[in-house]
Write a protein that binds this DNA or RNA. Structure first.
Lengths: 224, 224
DNA sequence: GTCTATATATCGATAGAC
DNA sequence: GTCTATCGATATATAGAC
């Protein structure tokens, strides 16, 4: 036998990875590593090491580091979409929206790595249309109940949707940044507040229509 | 003369930096580099090169890369604070809050590098209390008018403040991510919508109080 | 306070064997 | 599809001269 005795069959050498779906394993390991060290520190080399494959192996499955991160982002969008759909499955339109907002924030806490890959990776989404596509259903989960509340006005429905999504997103991001404190209590505070803010936005929905008027004419002189 | 002829006095060698306030120059150059290449790609080495100093020089002023980024974040918090104060200087409480929300979003667009250093650097703020301190006045700019609207209820004022800040922040972040489109039009759309959403939150303020009730008793069974 | 020089590390990505 | 080997680049950070 050669130096390494082929090293696979008889002695699987501790975590050696030599079979199955390397692509899927890379995605999962990437999620783990982002959780442990943060997205910026994630590297292809470390993922390879952890899986016991050569540093060249991942390049059979992903063109580069960004492509791997994009695959993680797609997975994140899918999972978040599923959770939102479950959360917004029943109740009045307002209840469904509030539940979706709470779920959005909890997802960010629970699946921090996935959420960061989706929202904090700085990937140019126009370069990765798969992400946009996967994210589309997220918007729809909010849009459907919003349309009920907007009384047939599509523009109003779109505005309500994007205000609610932005609000949920803001709560999620600030929570991850520690603004609501730390620990599970912080998550619940942020989630409940996002839900309550959603109800408040719905109640004050009429104010959202003023956006059009404000944006309409040219107003290049506005100063700071 | 030695090999380089001391190289400074007579021939300032193109952008050579040999005087003045290197600390301040580093902060400015960092802002420039973040704008050009993005925060993750920023490096001390490149900042040094651009200033024409040795790579070791910055370490006289900043312990490490994070410390330099923290200094940029402090500058960002100061500048944002000033802008918010100007924007929220007059009008009714609701008008001041809406103006602050719009200004928050515009700042993120206008001063993208600073905003990213403040909000997207992933620096542990508890390690850099200077940032938290500098950020404090941002919260106050929102809190003061919110307190007027909350009719003496401090808890309600705090909730309204944090809902509005989270909403403004969410609009800013999503705008930078391209969700509102691209170009100056996207900024205005996001800013105006953040302002309108602020007014909607104020109008629906009563719903924010339900947070307390919702969080109060143990409710570990909620499912996904 | 800045420079030169360097130690140390790590990474992304590719070529070519098997 | 995976491995070995490696190139080339870049980074952070320190030591010691000036």
């Amino acid at each position: 036998m050669t130096r390494q005795d082929r090293a696979a069959q008889a002695a699987p050498k501790r975590g050696r990875y030599h079979h199955g779906d390397l692509r899927a394993a890379l995605i999962q390991t990437t999620i783990d590593l982002i959780g442990e060290r943060g997205l910026p520190e994630f590297s292809m080399a470390e993922a390879s090491r952890r899986l016991g494959v050569a540093v060249a192996a991942p390049y059979r499955h992903f063109a580069d580091r960004d492509a791997l991160l994009a695959a993680v982002a797609v997975r994140a969008a899918e999972l978040l979409g599923e959770r939102l759909d479950s959360a917004a499955a029943s109740g009045t339109a307002a209840q469904r929206l509030a539940a979706a907002a709470r779920t959005y924030v909890r997802f960010a806490a629970d699946q921090r790595s996935l959420f960061q890959a989706l929202a904090g990776s700085g990937l140019d989404k126009s370069s990765y249309p798969e992400i946009e596509h996967a994210a589309r259903s997220i918007g729809l989960t909010f849009l459907t109940p919003a349309a009920e509340l907007a009384d047939g006005d599509e523009t109003a429905a779109a505005r309500l949707t994007s205000a609610i999504v932005a609000t949920a997103h803001g709560h999620a991001v600030l929570m991850l940044d520690g603004v609501f404190g730390s620990g599970p209590q912080a998550t619940e505070t942020a989630a409940e507040q996002a839900g309550a803010a959603t109800l408040a936005l719905i109640a004050g929905q009429a104010h959202l229509s003023n956006v059009a008027e404000a944006v309409a004419p040219d107003r290049s002189e506005e100063g700071i």
